[in-house]
Amino acid sequence: MARFRGGILKAAIFRRILRRWAKIAREASTSNLTQLRRRSNQARQLRLHLDQLIHVADSRLALPMIGSTTFRKPQGSDWSWRPELWRGPLPVPGMSAVENKSTLGSEVTLFHDCVFSELTLRQLRNTREADLAPFGLRMDVFRFDGSFLSLVIDLPPEAVQGLKRRHLIRMDTIVEMEKPLEIFARLNIRHGPNTEQIVRELPLHEEDIMVEFDLAYTKLNEKRVEKAWLDLIFEGPEMNQVVLRDLTFSRRPRAEL
């Protein structure tokens, strides 16, 4: 009750101050110069704090909200997910000279076979108006003496709960590159002693970068599905910077014919 009354009192005080400054503004053209100079100085002091508040508020409110899971999903999706790296701040936001099998957060692992690692990974805050993900991932590759480079994302248990061969699994991403390269997405689903793999090349020339994995063309044993993960494979990554502004997954059953 006290907090409610305090809120009403603050609102009343604000309205009173607002009416006072509105009246001062209306009287500016007829006030004597001494009074006008005093009020002008007061207004400038007040404007300094108001401008600072508006600047900070506009900056913070323009950013995607930390923890956001908002993104476009196909109609009929029964599961959707944005990994933690793109969703919230990590305890360790980056690393340099990244070794093979290094992890960034609990869901992303980098694999490579370089003898001398000249790779860096860093989580960055998205600030663009078009960004829905709060965070992105930047990978810098300098000299590269290996034969493969892949980023592995472990999908959560919910991704395979009730998974059927009639499902389509979709991955959407936003990619920025310093120079062109090829990126492949490989979905892996372990069922019993076997692992199904489906490979798709990312259409980096298109505005919306999306790939779908149709499980109808696999030999998936629906009763023995254990886990799933996705490999992002980078071909010819040397002397390049790749930024993954967003990475999301969704799952939907195929329409019955």
Rank of each mutant, 00 (worst) to 15 (best):
R125A: 13
D113K: 09
R166F: 02
E158W: 06
T109H: 06
I153N: 01
V115M: 11
A159S: 15
K164Q: 15
L110W: 00
P134Q: 00
F111D: 08
L151M: 15
R125W: 06
M139C: 13
M171A: 14
T127H: 12
F142A: 12
E118V: 00
F116V: 15
P157D: 05
A159N: 00
D140C: 10
E118T: 06
L110K: 02
E158G: 06
L163Q: 04
C114W: 02
L110M: 09
D113H: 09
L168I: 15
M139V: 07
V141Y: 04
S150P: 02
H167I: 00
P157S: 06
V108M: 03
A133W: 06
A133P: 05
T120S: 15
L110H: 05
L137D: 00
T109W: 02
L168H: 13
C114S: 05
E129D: 13
L124Y: 15
Q161L: 13
H112R: 02
L151G: 10
L124F: 15
L149W: 03
Q161P: 04
S150V: 10
R138P: 00
F111E: 06
V152K: 11
C114H: 04
A159M: 11
D154T: 09
H112I: 02
G136D: 03
R170Q: 06
F148I: 01
F116H: 14
F111L: 10
Q123D: 12
M139L: 11
H167M: 01
N126K: 07
S147C: 10
A130N: 10
E118W: 11
F144Q: 02
